[in-house]
Amino acid sequence: MKLAYTMAPGRGDTDLVLERVAIALAAQGLRCCGTVQINSARADAGPCDMDVRVLPDGAVLRISQDLGPESRGCRLDPAALETAVGLVEPRLKAGADLLIVNKFGKHEAEGRGFRTLIAEAVAMDVAVLVGLNARNLAAFEAFSGGLAVRLPPDVTALTDWGREAALKPAPAP
């Protein structure tokens, strides 16, 4: 199984690292599909806006919703997330070397979002690199059967793994 994840300690750090990895791997000629997250500061000093860019050069979608300044709940827009999944799926099926998913989050932990697409990529022997936070680590480990490789949040280490995993044939059963 060619499945790896990374976790960076600071808020938004995993997003920045995965975006740099996607750029580096594309520059090396790898066919990457998936999403990278872009966080934008808001003028009203509220929580950042969250967008995803569909790889390699697709649409940028706003996946957060403005729930007002006093809200404390999840700001993810589930419909926008599912739109992103719908845009990535044909790119995976058209042929990809690597699937990058910005986050295995709450929706994936509950069986939605990119979860099915991650499983499809693994079944197709496409390398998968996922961003993760500590809150969803147990759900991801259960999903992956504990077989995913944890990698440091380092652009070079992640790029090296992505290139090697994408180019290496799967082991014989």
Rank of each mutant, 00 (worst) to 15 (best):
E89H: 09
P69H: 15
A80Y: 09
E82P: 03
A94V: 01
A134V: 12
A134T: 15
G146L: 10
L132A: 09
F104G: 08
E108K: 00
L98K: 07
G146D: 05
K106Q: 14
S144Y: 06
N136G: 05
N102L: 07
K93N: 07
E70M: 15
R150Y: 06
A109M: 01
S144E: 09
C74E: 11
L92S: 05
E70K: 15
N136Y: 12
E108N: 08
N102W: 04
L99D: 02
A127N: 07
E89T: 11
L137D: 13
L137Q: 15
G86L: 02
L81H: 10
G145N: 11
A123H: 11
E120R: 13
V149F: 12
R150E: 14
G113Y: 05
F114K: 00
A142H: 13
K103F: 05
L151K: 05
E110Q: 15
A138N: 12
L147Q: 14
V101Q: 04
R72V: 13
L137T: 11
V88I: 06
L117T: 03
G73Y: 01
G113D: 10
G105V: 04
A123S: 14
G86V: 06
G146K: 08
V122Y: 00
D77M: 05
K93P: 05
G145E: 08
L132T: 06
T116H: 15
A123N: 13
A148R: 02
A94C: 09
L99F: 02
V122P: 02
F143C: 07
E108Q: 11
V85Q: 09
A127M: 05
H107F: 12
I118G: 04
V128S: 02
C74T: 07
L87E: 13
P78Y: 07
E141D: 14
E70N: 15
A79N: 10
L81N: 05
L87W: 03
G113S: 03
T116E: 15
F143N: 09
G131N: 10
V126P: 03
L129P: 10
E120F: 05
T116C: 12
E89P: 08
N133I: 12
G145S: 10
L117Y: 07
A138F: 03
I100V: 11
N136Q: 12
V88Y: 08
A127T: 01
E108C: 11
F104Q: 01
A94F: 03
G111Q: 05
G145Y: 12
L137K: 14
A79F: 00
V126R: 02
F104W: 11
L99G: 06
E141C: 06
F104H: 03
L99M: 01
E82D: 15
R75Q: 14
A119V: 01
L98V: 08
L117D: 05
R91L: 05
G145V: 04
F143D: 09
K93M: 02
P90W: 03
D97Y: 03
A94D: 06
L132I: 10
G111E: 01
M124K: 06
D77V: 04
R115K: 13
G145H: 10
M124A: 14
L117P: 04
E120Q: 14
L98F: 09
G73S: 15
L151D: 07
A94E: 00
E120N: 08
A148V: 09
T116Q: 15
L129R: 03
R135C: 11
F114N: 00
G73F: 11
E110M: 13
